[in-house]
Design a protein around this nucleic acid. Sequence first.
DNA 1: CAGTATTTGTCAAGGATTTCACAAGGGGAC
DNA 2: GTCCCCTTGTGAAATCCTTGACAAATACTG
Lengths: 210, 210
Amino acid sequence: MGKQVISTPVVRRLPRYYRFLGELECEHIERISSKELAQRMGLSASQIRQDFNCFGGFGQQGYGYHVGELRTIIGEILGVDAHTPMILIGAGNLGRALAAHLDFEKHGCELIGIFDSNPELAGTQAAWLTVQPMHTLVGFCRTHQPQAAVLCIPKDGAQKLCDQLIHLGIRAFWNFSHYDLRINNPDIIVENVHLGDSLMTLAYCMHHSE
Amino acid sequence: MGKQVISTPVVRRLPRYYRFLGELECEHIERISSKELAQRMGLSASQIRQDFNCFGGFGQQGYGYHVGELRTIIGEILGVDAHTPMILIGAGNLGRALAAHLDFEKHGCELIGIFDSNPELAGTQAAWLTVQPMHTLVGFCRTHQPQAAVLCIPKDGAQKLCDQLIHLGIRAFWNFSHYDLRINNPDIIVENVHLGDSLMTLAYCMHHSE
DNA sequence: CAGTATTTGTCAAGGATTTCACAAGGGGAC
DNA sequence: GTCCCCTTGTGAAATCCTTGACAAATACTG
């Protein structure tokens, strides 16, 4: 039962597999071969087989993969039913949009609190939650023990707030601020989402193709 | 003047370099060595040198790189001053937040129109633009010739809309719908931003580290 | 002005990831 | 039940990306 380390590229493909298998389920397709899945996803069949094999072979020779079963397994690997408690800091445009737009529970998390440093926003609604002022953060964390935080704040205060949150028990950050958090503790997980970078990449590709 | 193809990993690092160089400029640092930049960014010095060399050596031996100059060059490579005209489809939570939150002009683009299929949203304000109904889309594209589109729509209509937009002259998509666009034309550029996938990756990392 | 300390550009080695190729095993037809 | 076809799992080859090492060139020091 040696816990082999899974490489980053494989991990980043897992959610995509999960999504495509969900689509197949919607189409009531019960079985799929690596070849067929590869065509749908624009990958190579052997990559798919290699990826799935990181977690142990759950296909059948001469048959392929059971869609439902495979999706369940990948869901378990990803931890989609974990309901990790999560807070969101920064109830501006983006913060509110994320809270409203994204189904956290279907992705392994549960949004349990929203905070903003602007006192005027405290008390307003964001999605189904009430925005709380920052001074209640410490007490809230003591009581509800959130594990992860979404950061939708300007870059200036980001690093300081991040350090504070680590002290309060947060061990994972989903970071939307235009800033790369710098954390020396390797147990703290950071997922940076730099929308500006993504847009620039698009601009680059347009600029360099005709 | 052979136009060497730049590998994807390098292209994806460019915006990050651009961002860090901007921070250095704010701190009034005029020169930087690959070693020092590497420490700040958490990369290796030789990777930085290798990356910059894809575009021709613009450092000085024994000195390092001129921050301002380097940033200007990378900006030109990325095309940050291109002002590519862009439209946004889907003025829901996320669409509005993007329009308001992101400075398109600083990233090589110019947002010139917002559309939504819900007639009730037509006429409302989103950022500094007025949301337009979908039936004006064709005319608008003929007149203003947008080059790229941001898609903030549910996945159901995404593929169909995408095909239609290609007909109207759109050649790049910044796709936020929970769906992978499937386009056979290699000249069309797609940048998928799957926020759900990103959140699941975070959940996976939390689940598999203690 | 000579000597030393830096630092780049670059080539080669090392690692990581993807693709290829094929043996082994199961499914379906008759 | 037997044969044939299909598809997986897997080890090895190939490709791609990152790191290491060093000569050549520049800046700085006294």
